[in-house]
Design a protein around this nucleic acid. Sequence first.
DNA 1: TTGCTCCTCACGTCACGTGAGGTGGC
DNA 2: TTGCTCCTCACGTCACGTGAGGTGGC
Lengths: 230, 230
Amino acid sequence: VGDLARSTGLTVRTIHHYEAMGLLGSQARTDSGHRLYDGASVQRLYRIRVLRSLGVSLADIRLLLEKESSIASVLRQHLARVEEQAEGLISLRDRLRRICRREDSTLDANDVLQTIEAMSLLERHLDRRRVSTSTPLLSREAAWRQLGDELRVHMIAGDDPCSPRVRALATRARSLIHDFAAGDSAVVAALARVRTAAPPGNLAGWDPVLMRYLDRALHALEERTANDAE
Amino acid sequence: VGDLARSTGLTVRTIHHYEAMGLLGSQARTDSGHRLYDGASVQRLYRIRVLRSLGVSLADIRLLLEKESSIASVLRQHLARVEEQAEGLISLRDRLRRICRREDSTLDANDVLQTIEAMSLLERHLDRRRVSTSTPLLSREAAWRQLGDELRVHMIAGDDPCSPRVRALATRARSLIHDFAAGDSAVVAALARVRTAAPPGNLAGWDPVLMRYLDRALHALEERTANDAE
DNA sequence: TTGCTCCTCACGTCACGTGAGGTGGC
DNA sequence: TTGCTCCTCACGTCACGTGAGGTGGC
């Protein structure tokens, strides 16, 4: 009978479900059809409960109980899945945080949606680069960090973003950006949008204020290039 | 028709599903019953797609599209859910990592399961404490950190865990432990098990080696107390 | 006779995927 | 006539929750 439920902390329905899924062997029945359980059932349910608390699927638990696979391998496989899920969820969380942070002021739906799309486009681009590119990410990050440090000096000194020294740095930044984008102008545009609309908190030593400063310098650079072309 | 599918990157079935869920208004039909879509449909589907990529539910998206709620509020609510999920998943991931790390050597299923249960018992206890206790967690952590620093000196010096100085520290540790357990002996036992079987990597400045050292000292202390009692 | 537990279906959850079976346009 | 697209059901997913309707034991 299901005093079992009370002693295991499960619901009766859950126990029936486990039985239907084949996690409990066939139980003895009383004349009236009521199930009879013994200590082994309690033990079995206890194990199931612990494994379920880790999120292991009933199918995997069944394999385990049938001794067709070891705890070690099941848990390791499960860990792999959880790692992947957690990574995805953390990245989603961070994207949402960045969007929600700035969004109190600017409430235009279209704008927000485009920013979101820019962010996921960049994420996809990063993933592609991660597998395909030969230049290690670390050296790129070092280049950005170096550039950020130099640029910050000018920003703190209050230099005009159009001044020649700053412009030289902006040119370097632009080249790094185009290098990263690998000829994809959508990536360049997405970078520009994300940089102003939902800047990452701390990436390679850059902060939002510094990014805005770079943005002004890049704008100045673009205008100048346009003028030269005329 | 569903060239729409190709131009939005969705499957035909997905579009039909969205329509069934009320996310697309009623479409015009051709004589033969085929649906006709226009630019507005593309725009609508584009928005749905972006929001779905954030994991927003179809129900929430519908509310948004019907202007019954703002993007800002929907995204903030969604963020709250995601934060909670991520927190849970991260804690699960960390528990699994700690279990899998040691588990290659000791493969006894019962042992592993009991360790898992000890870990979740501690987690629950921590949660309860977090809301009920008046002593701030930070001061407890500081006490542990201080104790760890002192103990490490003895460990590095190669002092016997039974020596009087170390024993004094172990007594302090035991008092901290009982304070944390608040009279619950199951918590004390769980702590002992987790400490040896699946120690956290870095908690308040403690590392597994230091924990094992403390463990030996505590054992020595217990034996001595038992002897005194005789 | 009245509560209580037990039983067995069976629908609902969430966002679709995947056939199943049939019809219109080239 | 032959492919292709389109249509509308409808089942399956995962771990149960939640009644629905009926029966045995006190």
